[in-house]
Amino acid sequence: MQKLWDISPPVHPGTPVFPGDTPYQQQWSATIAPGCPVNVSAITLSPHVGAHADAPLHYDERGAAMGDVSLDAFLGPCRVVHAIDCGPLIEWQHIAHAVNATLPQRVLVRTYATAPAEWDAGLTAYAPATIERLADLGVLLVGIDTASIDPADSKTLESHQVIRRRNLRVLENLVLDDVPEGDYELIALPLKLTTADASPVRAVLRAL
């Protein structure tokens, strides 16, 4: 069997969320007991908890909701690039070593040596110009192992606006701690949430 890397963080009540966002919560609607053969729970969470895909609706008031987004970008060859501890922004020089004529249409960048268990207000984000250059090379999807492709305190979301203008897709909150640089098959399908601004994904990489 081909090797799989699970690049999704665990989701539970302690999973860090963006300040002000809805954390994961779970209540039991039914539990196995005499007269009840099943456990059934109800969950509440932001669609941005854990590994997730942003829909255009997240950063564009007229953008498509998650259920209307094509799945093509979330499935196919990808390249994992290491830019560990590169600073506040992923600049072109941090990933240029891994860019060549065979660059796949999906690029995931690792910035943490070890993914944090707590909210990181100083998270690394993409420089907008880096996303522009990746789009120029035919990239359809960018991913990152932090909670946002923009700085946590950004009010203009410049990298999200590049994504909007260039019609790219984005994955955030990936866990790339154990993934060597190189090429893989990405499988990270969002749920068909017809009115949502994002969707959780179970993101995995498969050896080519």
Rank of each mutant, 00 (worst) to 15 (best):
179 V>F: 05
31 T>G: 09
29 S>C: 13
90 I>L: 03
24 Y>R: 01
30 A>R: 14
58 H>I: 04
89 L>I: 02
91 E>A: 09
60 D>M: 03
60 D>V: 02
17 V>E: 09
43 I>D: 11
134 L>R: 03
84 I>W: 06
150 D>A: 04
125 A>E: 01
185 E>Q: 13
139 V>S: 07
96 A>K: 13
75 L>F: 14
34 P>V: 06
132 E>K: 06
101 A>M: 10
44 T>E: 13
107 V>I: 12
140 L>H: 13
125 A>F: 01
102 T>S: 15
127 A>Q: 14
135 A>I: 13
176 L>Y: 05
162 V>M: 05
10 P>H: 07
187 I>R: 15
166 R>D: 08
118 E>G: 01
56 P>I: 04
89 L>S: 10
94 H>S: 08
97 H>G: 10
132 E>G: 05
170 V>C: 04
183 D>N: 14
84 I>L: 08
33 A>F: 06
63 G>W: 07
174 L>H: 01
81 V>R: 04
185 E>D: 11
73 A>L: 04
122 G>M: 06
14 G>D: 15
19 P>K: 09
162 V>S: 02
123 L>R: 12
35 G>N: 11
159 S>C: 06
116 P>L: 01
64 A>H: 07
59 Y>V: 08
147 A>R: 13
135 A>D: 13
174 L>D: 06
195 T>Q: 12
11 V>Q: 09
137 L>H: 10
93 Q>L: 04
192 K>W: 10
24 Y>N: 04
67 G>T: 05
168 L>N: 02
17 V>W: 06
38 V>M: 14
11 V>D: 09
92 W>A: 04
116 P>I: 01
21 D>A: 14
156 T>V: 07
121 A>R: 11
33 A>K: 15
84 I>Q: 09
1 M>L: 11
200 P>E: 03
181 E>K: 02
126 Y>L: 00
185 E>Y: 03
4 L>M: 14
186 L>W: 09
176 L>V: 05
34 P>A: 11
5 W>A: 10
42 A>R: 15
138 G>R: 00
160 H>M: 09
114 T>R: 14
152 A>Y: 06
1 M>R: 14
146 T>G: 01
24 Y>K: 04
63 G>Y: 03
68 D>C: 02
24 Y>S: 02
149 I>G: 02
149 I>H: 03
146 T>E: 00
96 A>T: 12
2 Q>H: 14
148 S>V: 08
15 T>F: 00
197 D>H: 05
163 I>N: 01
22 T>Q: 13
108 L>F: 08
6 D>I: 12
50 G>M: 05
77 P>G: 09
72 D>H: 10
51 A>T: 09
132 E>L: 07
100 N>K: 07
1 M>C: 12
198 A>C: 05
187 I>S: 14
78 C>I: 09
87 G>W: 11
131 I>S: 03
56 P>C: 06
43 I>R: 15
105 Q>D: 13
54 D>Y: 02
173 N>Q: 14
101 A>D: 15
61 E>H: 12
103 L>M: 04
177 D>H: 01
106 R>L: 08
89 L>W: 10
129 A>I: 10
155 K>S: 08
37 P>E: 14
150 D>S: 11
40 V>T: 13
160 H>W: 08
206 R>Q: 13
53 A>G: 02
164 R>E: 10
164 R>A: 12
72 D>G: 05
136 D>W: 04
150 D>F: 01
55 A>Q: 02
39 N>K: 12
